[in-house]
């Protein structure tokens, strides 16, 4: 456990100093800061628009950070030969990969916290909303964090065998497909009018594809059929789903990484 934690904390130390990530984060924060100003443009329902916009900014920025953070992680270690010194110590490859992943997720948590804080401050400043409403607003970023952890695991798994650029498109593509089309496959597989074969295929895709859409709770346009009864239960369910999926991805990544020449 000790090596995993050391590798994780070193990864955090590196990540929060990476200029690209800081620039992306800065852009996100800037957009959050000006969002209330833009929200005024829409007279209709200012609050809803502002919320949607701020959460959208956080989600998009986090997704970009999650991918950029992870696709270069392993290739950089190999290119700079830092991995050799580590693997020549009593550190197993799985410990290295898990440490790297946990570090990435922790760095992501720090950055998402920062954005959430900015969002809350801006929202409070603009709306003078009560604490309960603000606490409610914070539920979405928590869901996004699980989503981004899942995305990071996808990218880490791919990074054990593809180049960063390919990985960028693979993970990014999977994120989009998993966010946009998963509800479609879900509908297809649960609809009684669907032919049996299509239904099986849809079920399979639905099972294999990481269901990123689970976490887009604030977006009723994308998830029209989603009505959440017990919120806490739903949150627990999708978190468990996320963690299990992440474990699966890491196991696959470790199996590939173990056999790989570095």
């Amino acid at each position: 456990m000790r090596p995993i934690l050391s590798i994780a904390s070193t990864t955090v130390g590196e990540a929060i100093r990476r200029r690209v990530l800081l620039i992306i984060l800065l852009i996100g924060v800037l957009f959050l800061a000006v969002a209330p100003g833009l929200g005024v443009l829409s007279a209709r329902s200012e609050t809803t628009v502002l919320r949607g916009m701020m959460l959208g900014i956080i989600q998009l920025t986090s997704a970009v950070i999650a991918i950029v953070l992870t696709v270069y992680m392993l290739p950089n270690e190999i290119e700079r030969r830092t991995i050799y010194t580590i693997l020549s110590k009593p550190v197993q490859r799985w410990q290295f990969l898990v440490g790297k992943y946990l570090g990435a997720v922790s760095a992501l948590a720090i950055m998402m916290c920062l954005m959430s804080v900015v969002m809350v401050l801006m929202y409070w400043y603009q709306q003078h909303a009560p604490i309960s409403e603000i606490a409610n607003l914070l539920k979405a970023p928590m869901m996004y964090f699980v989503q981004m952890s899942l995305l990071a695991a996808v990218a880490v798994m791919f990074s054990t065998f593809v180049s960063p650029l390919v990985n960028f498109f693979l993970s990014g593509g999977l994120y989009l497909v998993g966010s946009l089309f998963n509800p479609f496959f879900e509908t297809l597989s649960s609809n009684n009018n669907t032919p049996a074969f299509t239904k099986t295929v849809a079920k399979f895709i639905n099972l294999v594809l990481p269901n990123f859409a689970n976490y887009n709770v604030q977006n009723p346009i994308i998830n029209p059929q989603q009505t959440i009864g017990n919120e806490t239960q739903y949150f627990i369910n999708v978190t468990v789903y996320g963690v299990l999926y992440i474990l699966g991805l890491l196991v696959v990544g470790i199996l590939i990484f173990d056999r790989r020449e570095v």
Binding site: R2, P3, L5, S6, I7, T10, G13, E14, R17, R80, R81, T82, Y84, T85, I86, S88, K89, P90, V91
Partner: peptide, 30 residues
Amino acid sequence: HRLISYVPERPYYYEHMTGLELLKFYGSLF
């Protein structure tokens, strides 16, 4: 691996660490 060590050619260490932090990091792996 507990009994050996390795210094790669043209080594590169995590640049953000200080010399002391670097020793602490590699020490923690043992």
